[in-house]
Design a protein around this nucleic acid. Structure first.
Lengths: 194, 194
DNA sequence: ATTATCTATAGATCTATAGATAATGC
DNA sequence: ATTATCTATAGATCTATAGATAATGC
């Protein structure tokens, strides 16, 4: 399912560029301060607009966040069920090269568990989907029985948990935590095939 | 190392109680809104004080956060190197019974990766310590060689990552994620001894 | 006409300080 | 005296709306 160019007949190319600029700036500011701590003014300043000028492109702060989340190409370098297990290591390596995106994502994930957070539903659904996709990836690699007697469905949340958990440890202390190496260790642990 | 009663000669018992009440309220409000989203007024209201009344007990919002973090009994039902591996499963089970604390912790961890967050140093140091402690726990259980050819030091960040990562998945969707079960699965994966 | 921006501003908050008042502990 | 709490308030923000002005596209 390829999803369109985002600037259909109603919106000019120039406007599309502006939106993209704003989204990039929002991503940065959220990485630095989280969503609740990010002010529209800070995002606007980064693209040389006033806060009111920004609100012409996104009618509210929440609309801006939703747009950021939907532009999930950023994190949807993340796998679907077509992926192969041995590519996950490379994905983690790739993530280690873009701390900004990882930080935005991790800050939003952390905030999203608080009450009434506008990203909560997004993450809940996303994780359900990612667990399913990972189960399928594991099934392709191992069939129904994994080491330790696990099924793909039971191993999937662990795989996801390791990726997320390592991101926090790595963001807090990149010198001490070799994120890609640790993730490969986990794949090793998963068994001979990995 | 037992750490004292927190109300030495300088502070009355009544004051200690008030402080404890405030800390409990702060824990709740942070769970609901994160640290940046938590207002002193919201915490104060919960203990029947004005915001200014609260600031008599903690001179600033940051001082309140520091006090919350230092009262880490909450999360330091978390292991030191004396622990045994098979007790970790029970710890996760215990955590599954106190979603509030888990949520406070997870929200703070998420926020802490943003710039200039007052909990950042705390978490960085805490994780270094927890990794060390976990390595020692693994060493006691397995010696120097774990399944997959891992050393205790290399397995430790994975163990920690699984615990944290599962917490997020579980907070977002407790119906779909069996946190204690999944963690036991991971211990199973770690090998025969676990 | 529509789109992009701006200035002005309303209306909420938020943290923190100053200083008054009441209660408590020697 | 010290401790706990309150009222008043300064000084920053923040989001969002209203309405003016300039630029762009048919």
């Amino acid at each position: 399912m390829s999803y369109g160019d985002g600037m259909s007949s109603t919106r000019s190319a120039r406007s599309g560029e502006r939106r993209a600029e704003i989204l990039r700036a929002a991503l940065e500011v959220i990485a630095e301060r989280g969503y609740r701590g990010a002010s529209l003014a800070a995002v606007a300043e980064r693209v040389g607009l006033t806060q009111q000028g920004l609100l012409h492109h996104f009618p509210s702060k929440e609309a801006l966040l939703v747009a950021v989340l939907e532009e999930r190409d950023q994190w949807d370098a993340v796998p679907d069920s077509q992926w192969r297990l041995d590519l996950l290591g490379s994905l983690v390596e790739y993530n280690a090269m873009r701390p900004g995106i990882v930080q935005t994502f991790s800050a939003l994930l952390g905030e999203s568990v608080t009450e009434g957070h506008p990203a909560r539903a997004f993450f809940t659904e996303r994780y359900a989907g990612v667990r399913e996709a990972m189960a399928q990836v594991l099934r392709v690699e191992y069939g129904e029985r994994l080491p330790g007697g696990l099924t793909p469905e039971r191993a999937a949340p662990l795989l996801v948990a390791v990726m997320d958990g390592l991101q926090y440890q790595w963001l807090l202390d990149p010198e001490s935590v070799d994120m890609p190496g640790a993730f490969r260790d986990f794949l090793e642990l998963l068994g001979p095939e990995g």
